[in-house]
Design a protein around this nucleic acid. Structure first.
Lengths: 338, 338
DNA sequence: CGTTGGCACTCGCACGCACAGAGTGCCAGG
DNA sequence: CCTGGCACTCTGTGCGTGCGAGTGCCAACG
């Protein structure tokens, strides 16, 4: 177990390194933080910290920089979440309240997060799984062609074409529309399959095929759209990454283009509370020199999607976590209102 | 006017520089291209080309590199469009045909373009202005709350909430839905305002306010959605930009995040045929060291939107133009089929 | 007059080297 | 356990040098 002072030294190292981006030495430490001990003592502590794997030196006789393990300890034990100031909170709220629709909410959230944290922001669209159906609309475009429109309680709209096995009259269509909505409106997506299971039985034999086709398309939509979409922004902040550009930045850009990777990244994060994944804790190799701070957000008490930021492991964790948490909270409010 | 040989020299310089990324000298030129003259002669020609502003030297006694003006001449007079090979064309077609909906078509197009050109791809969603209305759907969510869903012939769906000034019965809603669709279904967006102008007159006084509100929301949607959206991809290719990273890449990333800038960029390009904007020809300052190759694409004969790539001025123009043209052509086909 | 070979000149760049500065590890003493 | 001192190890930087690529100019040639 590390002594109290050694933890303080680690904290000081992380703070200084995040600020200066340069390896920090024993002398500089004692000058900038009044630890009450001499550089020599700090050197001993640093040697111990290095033995434990919390810090490392890039080359012999250079200062120390935190390792992933060091950051981990810092985040878990040494740093709190820095709350936003009142003016900042007000600014966030104002900015988000200007949104006109769901797309706009997401877009504004991305901009906001990127600006506050000066890093790359990632925001997942509110998930369908936990959402409820507001309305299902069926439109006849041709005798054997129906358009299915699904409207969710988060204001999202999905549409699908359905090619029917047989012509389908307007009357039958209206009938189906009515029965379908009476069963699923207001219900959770997860419950829909069970609720519509026996629906075809109420129809004439000739229409039954079409009804089944429409229903299976609906179910498909529910599942498929679970492969959720997301929006990213603030990629220009990647230029503040480090000195050795191309090599560091390229894999990150590639990861950001792969929605699958990002979704997995967010998905792996815990469902409740804020998650911080540091460096090699990220499964995806390209993100080994980045940290991901993510948190769930949602309209009610429970989370329907996640948002977060991707930045260098050398980041201001307390500040970033504060910003992420605050934004998530206010987005939740906005979604609940609309 | 430049002699034939001098143009050949310019062409050779551009080709070599694009390939090697290094200033090209007179000796190397005569070796790699058999111009039939000696280095000394080429030197004279190069001096002349430099006087005219087509090429420049980074520092005294280095080779020459093309200027924006040089690239311009190259593109206009010296280079054709390199057609895609048959296998490439087949690959493009296969890849695009796998798309399941409009979003997917656009997403695939972006990926494809980025991969083919190894540059940043930008694809505009098919524009609404020139599209036609397939269907307008009205849904009653609450007594005084209607949801308006607009479906276009390109398969795009837009929805809007409408708060009615007075409760609006199901019967009136069905009536409005029917009349509205009989007037606008299949018509061009541009014609819609004229077509619905006198629609409120056919309704009871108590409903007239609501009808007007719905109609004006519809018109708003048509206009607003003209601020079209776009999708970008292949940003990882920015890492192949040049040697002096952060400075070059940052403004480009910033520009790419500003949809407004990109839309303006595409909008400024000519409506028909391919447009190439080189370096300082781009109005936006951040893109002064990039070239933009864009072209319109559309489902019928006429263009409904644009797509293109953004890359360093030092790019393979014939190849890039070939890829852009081919992709635009096949996307048009796909859109026409669906 | 255009083309050519020759020649002197100019830079940028890589290399070697020495030096200062920062930081460490270790040790002996308080 | 803390502290001051000391020797050691690196890296980054500045400077001088030599090399090579490339240019511009000029005189000669067809």
């Amino acid at each position: 177990m590390l002594s109290e002072r050694r933890l303080q030294v680690l904290r000081a190292i992380v703070q200084d390194y995040v600020g200066t981006e340069e390896p920090v030495g024993s002398k500089a430490l004692t000058e900038r933080h009044n630890l009450g001990v001499s550089p020599a003592t700090v050197r001993n502590d640093m040697a111990a910290l290095e033995d434990e794997g919390y810090i490392a030196q890039p080359h012999t006789s250079a200062g120390r920089i935190p390792t992933d393990k060091g950051y981990r300890l810092f985040v878990d034990k040494l740093a709190g979440v820095k709350p936003m100031t009142a003016p900042e909170r007000r600014a966030i709220q104002n900015f988000l309240e200007g949104a006109v629709d769901l797309d706009d909410v997401v877009a504004r959230t991305v901009r906001l997060l990127a600006q506050l944290t000066r890093q790359v922001a990632v925001v997942q669209y509110p998930s369908l799984t936990r959402s409820t159906v507001r309305h299902v609309e069926l439109l006849s475009l041709a005798p054997a062609r129906v358009m299915l429109v699904l409207i969710t309680d988060t204001g999202r709209v999905e549409q699908r074409m359905v090619d029917c096995p047989a012509p389908f009259g307007e009357a039958s269509l209206a009938d189906l529309r009515a029965r379908l909505n009476s069963r699923v409106a207001g219900r959770r997506f997860a419950d829909v399959p069970r609720l519509v299971e026996d629906l075809p039985e109420g129809f004439d034999a000739e229409d039954r095929g079409t009804v089944s086709t429409v229903l299976s398309t609906l179910l498909e939509t529910l599942v498929e759209e679970n492969e959720e979409r997301l929006m990213i922004g603030g990629t220009a902040n990647l230029t503040r990454f480090g000195h050795d550009f191309p090599l560091t930045i390229r894999p990150v850009l590639e990861a950001l283009e792969e929605q699958v990777v990002l979704l997995k990244l967010l998905g792996e994060a815990g469902d409740s509370g804020m998650t911080v994944r540091i460096g090699h804790e990220n499964a995806y190799e390209g993100l080994n020199s980045t940290s991901v701070v993510s948190v769930g957000y949602g309209s009610g008490g429970e989370a329907v999607a996640k948002l977060g930021v991707v930045g260098p492991t050398r980041m201001d964790y307390p500040g970033t976590m504060g910003a992420v948490r605050a934004v998530a909270r206010y987005v939740g409010q906005i979604l609940a209102e609309s």
